[in-house]
Amino acid sequence: MRAVTEMPIDVAARITVLFADIDDTLTNEGLLPAAAYDAVERLTEAGVAVAPITGRPAGWCDMIARMWPVAGVVGENGAFYFAYDRTRRRMRRSFAIADAQRAADREKLARVRARILAEVQGAAVSADQLYREADLAIDFCEDVPTLPVSDVDRIKRIFEEEGAVAKVSSIHVNGWYGAYDKLTMTRRFADDILGVDIDAERDRIVFVGDSPNDAPMFGFFPNACGVANVLAFQGRIDAEPAYVAEREGGHGFVEVANRILDARSGRSAA
């Protein structure tokens, strides 16, 4: 991983789309810094399409798509995208799995939930579970005392032993049934809403993330960036970003945004 300041000017100047995780990428210790939100707004005003790509629930994503200066949101690790048409005042929602199958999958996840809570002491269902459409989120440090890595790995194994897909974020282990992830739904969102073929235009797109569940995005986008806290997952992540910020969380995100904006405006000299 190279420093964000080493991203070539010509590379940064041609970025037209920025995707970013939320928790510990846009936030710091659970709070969204004003500087990070301002960076999102500045990118959007400069003509860079911004979309959060998150593990957070549908309830949160509806609000973000409506109220943040973004083109849309991919949520629950790729279970859906939401995009709000401000002219027509209509929310566009697209799900990876049909309604009936999601309902059946939730019943299977209820059994997984019972097993995890019985077998991993200190784990808890995430506080935002009520607002989820497709996955089960197990909290290992957000609202509970931080569990050891061995317990986090155990939670992930239980999901997988039950036939579910499982991904580890900086705060939750998320599990679901279905062949999708952040990248698959980002591809659909980009095509439907942005009119962008990410396979053909990946060098004009930056993804910013911080944790193992961002690995599909890190591996796909050649100019992917990590905020500094991604360094804590070295050796436990399938793919690493090309660049890394000096600072953690939202303040690291601002570094990435500034590199792109400065290059697009011709202010950057290195």
Rank of each mutant, 00 (worst) to 15 (best):
Val17Ser: 13
Glu76Asp: 04
Pro33Arg: 09
Ala34Tyr: 15
Val48Tyr: 02
Met67Gln: 15
Ala39Gly: 05
Val50Gly: 06
Ile53Thr: 02
Thr16Asn: 11
Ala49Cys: 14
Ala100Asn: 09
Val17Thr: 11
Ile15Phe: 07
Leu26Ala: 02
Thr25Gly: 07
Ile53Arg: 00
Ala35Thr: 12
Arg66Met: 09
Arg90Gly: 04
Asp21Pro: 10
Tyr84Lys: 06
Leu43Val: 05
Arg56Ile: 06
Gly59Arg: 08
Arg56Asp: 11
Ala71Asp: 06
Leu32Met: 10
Ala83Arg: 04
Gly30Ala: 06
Phe19Pro: 02
Arg92Cys: 07
Ile53Trp: 02
Thr27Pro: 07
Glu41Ser: 15
Asp62Asn: 13
Arg66Gly: 05
Thr44Gly: 14
Thr54Tyr: 08
Glu29Cys: 12
Thr25Val: 10
Asp62Tyr: 08
Asp23Pro: 04
Glu41Thr: 11
Gly72Trp: 05
Arg86Asp: 09
Leu26Gly: 04
Leu43Met: 11
Tyr81Ala: 08
Arg66Phe: 03
Ala46His: 05
Asp62Ala: 11
Ala35Met: 10
Val17Pro: 15
Pro33Gln: 09
Glu45Cys: 12
Val50Ile: 07
Met63Gly: 14
Thr54Glu: 04
Ile15Leu: 09
Gly47Thr: 08
Val17Phe: 10
Tyr84His: 01
Ala98Arg: 14
Arg93Asn: 10
Arg92Ser: 06
Val70Glu: 01
Pro52Phe: 03
Met63Asp: 14
Met67Glu: 15
Ala79Met: 04
Ser94Tyr: 15
Ala79Thr: 01
Ile15Asn: 05
Met67Lys: 13
Ile22Gly: 15
Thr25Asn: 08
Val70Asp: 03
Arg66Cys: 11
Arg93Gln: 12
Asn77Ser: 02
Thr87Gln: 14
Ala34Thr: 14
Asp24His: 11
Leu43Trp: 12
Ile22Gln: 09
Tyr81Phe: 01
Gly59Ser: 03
Ala100Gly: 05
Pro33Asn: 13
Leu43Phe: 10
Ile15Tyr: 08
Ala100Thr: 09
Thr25Arg: 01
Thr27Arg: 13
Gly30Thr: 04
Leu32Val: 10
